[in-house]
Design a protein around this nucleic acid. Sequence first.
DNA 1: GATAAGATGTTA
DNA 2: AACATCTTATCA
Length: 180
Amino acid sequence: MAILDRNFFNRDTLKVARDLLGCKLNHKTKGEILSGIIVETEAYTHDDPACHASRGKTPRSATLFEKPGTVYVYLIYGMYHCLNFVTEEENTPGAVLIRALQPISPLKDTSGPGKLCREMNITKELNNSDGTDSNSYIWAEPYQDIQDKNIIKTTRIGIKKAVDYPWRFYIKNNAFVSRK
DNA sequence: GATAAGATGTTA
DNA sequence: AACATCTTATCA
């Protein structure tokens, strides 16, 4: 099983967001591995007003400038963690937000970026870690091949800037996509 | 130091 | 539609 490596993430953010659909996400925590299929993603790029790096490098957004494949986890609204994979080459900010998973491990509720982090036990501790090998705590690998006809490309959710960018991808008719 | 806004989720 | 709840950025 080939793990998604740095070359996979060192590409156009929109392509990475699309290609992550159908991949298996794994998180090693408390001696066990939790996993789920990625069914919904959003892209955030260097020329995107909604990206955390849109106003330059700050302590929080610094992770977005890291090497492709780096894990970016941040807290939103003081309550919920969100999981991202950094894309594009180093010093070019960009990331793919993982918005929903179809559980493989016995996870309860993973249809939303905050919910899946809660279920997968993903916290800020993982921020800035390397997500490109199975020795790290979190990584992804190809799992299902999703055809273009089964992918919906539409606008992103929960943002106030660049609301018209169709940079959200999800698998058609999948019950675990958020905001049904 | 203070303040406002935010890539959310739950409840009603 | 309100609210729970707190980090981050951006001022001063």
